[in-house]
């Protein structure tokens, strides 16, 4: 077997590319399997006419927030949990207030637990779909509308949706 160094060099280069390929592979894998708790950042298309609602049970959806690196907004849900029938739209507000004297751009990143729930939690309307801008001392009410898919496994009665709020003002400025 005569293997030229060139061929081996090509393999090395291909593996370098593979390292970078791991990034989208990871994303796709997580999306398809929902294994990361990373829920969709796209709006779920909800049609009330064809929606099936499972009235036999209710699921508790909890909401928690984390302000990354002491992100200086007040950022809390108006209510810490709601109980919904799978298939019906759950609605609640989040309150955000910029506690500083400077303009801050925030990005909320969602994450859900348990992981199996990821593909069953749909967001019809979420402030996490885009960055939010608050001027000095400005306050905002941010609505959230979610649906728990009726096909959610029966043994799951409680799930938690967590939002981590990041200060992305400098990201925006660099663009």
């Amino acid at each position: 077997m005569r293997v030229t160094p060139a061929k081996l060099g090509l393999i090395a280069l291909a593996m370098f590319g593979f390292g970078f390929l791991m990034v989208p592979i990871y994303d796709v894998f997580c999306k398809v399997t929902g294994l990361n708790g990373k829920t969709d950042v796209n709006a779920y298309q909800y049609d009330p006419k064809i929606a099936e609602i499972d009235t036999s049970r209710k699921v508790e959806v909890q909401f928690i927030t984390t302000k990354n690196e002491g992100m200086e907004w007040y950022f809390e849900p108006s209510i810490y949990s709601i109980k919904v029938h799978p298939g019906e739209v759950g609605v609640l507000d989040f309150i955000a207030e910029n506690l500083t004297a400077r303009r801050i751009i925030g990005q909320a990143i969602p994450s859900v637990t348990p992981f199996e729930v990821t593909n069953y939690l749909h967001k019809v309307e979420c402030f996490c779909f885009a960055t939010q801008v608050l001027g000095p001392h400005e306050k905002m009410v941010m609505p959230l509308r979610i649906i728990v898919d009726p096909n959610l496994p029966k043994h799951i009665k409680k799930l938690t949706l967590s939002y981590t709020l990041f200060d992305v003002t400098s990201f925006d400025e660099s663009m």
Binding site: F16, G17, G19
Partner: peptide
């Protein structure tokens, strides 16, 4: 050859 390039990817 299989894995050192992946480390290079990570640090890049």
């Amino acid at each position: 050859i299989a894995v050192m390039p992946v480390l290079a990817g990570a640090v890049t």
